[in-house]
Amino acid sequence: MARIAIDMDGVMADTTQQYIDWYAARYGVQVDKTSLNGKPETTGFPLDGVVRQFLYTPGFFRTKPVIPGSQEVIKALNEQHEVYIVSAAMEFPQSLSEKLAWLQDHFPFIGWQQIVFCGHKRIVDADYMIDDHVKNLSTFKGEPLLFTAPHNMNVQEYKRVNTWEEVGALLLAGN
């Protein structure tokens, strides 16, 4: 049985789609997701700097769409492995309670003992970490798995997983 640390934002919760949806609702402009490829997170939108402000807006973390396949694969992983949801939740004041409520809604099979909200993930001790940010994977001592997101498209140094089906194929017994 492996210990698996799974990031929320950009891995379970589709942060990029949330940026796009919120931008369209507020500014009337639909941004194509592929136009964000290779650009730092929160950049690439017509009005510079406004997307970062969404991170401070109540409801942003609470209403993110679920990344397809994550619920089914994480449930299966949870049945075979020791799974922890590890999310940086200290920088944005409302994110802590919103992330917890989001997890309870979309991943009710994850118990409170399996949720770790932290500032920096260098404290995480696991066999695998699935994350979309190099800053979290660079200090990880286990096997890092980079979950594909527009902001990390040009990163080459880590084993990449593009979908939850790929995660399942890699980490679930019988696949």
Rank of each mutant, 00 (worst) to 15 (best):
V66E: 12
A88T: 13
Q71N: 14
L96R: 13
A13W: 00
E98D: 08
V50A: 00
T57S: 13
F54V: 01
D9E: 09
L47M: 13
G168L: 07
V73Q: 13
V86Q: 02
M1E: 04
I115Y: 04
N78T: 13
Q17Y: 02
H133L: 13
K141R: 13
Y27Q: 10
I20S: 05
S70N: 08
S138F: 06
V167M: 08
A169P: 00
L77V: 13
T139F: 09
Q114H: 08
Y84A: 06
Q30N: 11
L96V: 03
A169I: 04
T15E: 08
M12G: 02
D127L: 06
A89K: 12
I74T: 15
M129S: 10
A76L: 14
K141D: 06
P68G: 12
V50W: 00
S97G: 03
S95E: 06
G119Q: 15
G44F: 02
Q71H: 15
A88H: 01
L103D: 08
Q30V: 11
L172H: 08
F109Y: 14
Q94P: 02
P65D: 05
G59T: 14
P58A: 10
N136V: 03
V134R: 15
G142I: 11
V86L: 00
E72C: 11
E79I: 09
T163V: 03
T57D: 11
A101C: 06
L137Q: 10
D21C: 07
N37E: 10
V11F: 03
G49V: 00
K64G: 06
T43G: 04
V29P: 04
M153Y: 08
F107G: 10
G69C: 08
A173D: 13
R122Y: 12
Y27K: 07
L55V: 03
E98N: 05
C118F: 09
G49N: 05
Q80E: 15
M12S: 03
G10T: 00
L36V: 00
L172C: 12
F60P: 01
I74S: 14
W164N: 04
E82Y: 08
D14R: 01
G38L: 06
W112K: 14
W102V: 10
V66H: 09
A89V: 07
G69Y: 01
A25G: 12
L145D: 08
H81Y: 11
D48Y: 06
L145F: 10
C118L: 15
E82K: 14
A5I: 03
I6N: 02
Q114F: 04
A126Y: 06
I85S: 06
R52Y: 05
H106N: 15
E91C: 03
A173T: 10
F92A: 03
K39C: 02
T139W: 04
E143A: 10
V50E: 10
T163H: 05
F107M: 13
L145A: 12
Q53H: 05
T42M: 05
F140C: 02
P93R: 09
N162D: 14
G174F: 10
V83H: 11
V31I: 08
T16M: 03
T63E: 15
